[in-house]
């Protein structure tokens, strides 16, 4: 009789059980990785603050344009919202709708990255490149790291979009999209901090 207990417990984990368990573990592991990544951003913020006064006598108030920064912020916030709609569609099992929303997310994400690159490029050719001062080094590192993360997220959205288009909305694909969602919203939170602590004090 005791063997039956073993069976029910662990002797024979069914495929569904072990798949469910793998999803839980991956989500937990992904949170840990996000924490590790958050520390990288925190340290870059700290470096930026420590460097904020090393401006090599340049003015920091003329560097940024409010409309551009506002547009970037809106694009990223919109992408967060569209990703939310995609998540709703996924949990409702609506594959086509999920793909449309993911497409919207990647379009606004891509526009954000393009605007970010053009901003950094414009600064670099206007004598405000990362080598000019400690302030600019810290700024470029932070924005560049964030932009690289968003670009990585874009590649990931495209890949997962292809996956559900080709293979359907399997539970494992849904869990991948869930983790991608964590990543995407995390990047929006980082951007809110960049907007509040880096741009706003120099725009107001």
């Amino acid at each position: 009789m005791t063997d039956a207990v073993i069976t029910a417990d662990h002797g024979d984990e069914t495929n569904a059980e072990s798949a469910q368990r793998a999803i839980e573990e991956k989500t937990y592991g992904f949170w840990l990785w996000l924490m590790s990544d958050a520390i990288i951003f925190a340290l870059l913020f700290a470096i930026f603050v420590a460097m904020a006064r090393n401006t090599a006598d340049g003015s920091t108030h003329t560097l940024f344009l409010l409309p551009r920064i506002f547009a970037e912020t809106m694009l990223l916030l919109a992408s967060s919202a569209t990703f939310g709609f995609a998540s709703v569609a996924i949990s409702a099992g609506q594959r086509r709708r999920a793909i449309v929303w993911l497409g919207m997310t990647s379009i606004s994400g891509l526009s954000f990255v393009v605007m970010e690159i053009s901003e950094l490029y414009g600064m670099a050719i206007a004598n405000a490149g990362p080598w000019q001062s400690g302030f600019l080094s810290g700024f470029f590192a932070l924005i560049g790291t964030h932009g690289a993360h968003v670009s990585f997220g874009l590649v990931w959205i495209v890949l997962l979009g292809c996956e559900i288009a080709l293979r359907g909305l399997t539970p494992i694909a849904a869990s991948r999209l869930y983790r991608l969602g964590l990543f995407w919203h995390f990047l929006v939170i980082v951007w809110i901090n960049i907007f509040s602590f880096i741009y706003l004090p120099r725009l107001l």
Partner: peptide, 21 residues
């Protein structure tokens, strides 16, 4: 470990891109 990654990566940028970290 993220802290070491940041230190080493920024050191590389200082060396090759001329940043001022």
């Amino acid at each position: 470990y993220p802290s070491l990654i940041v230190a080493a990566a920024l050191l590389g940028l200082d060396r090759h891109l001329g940043t001022q970290f």
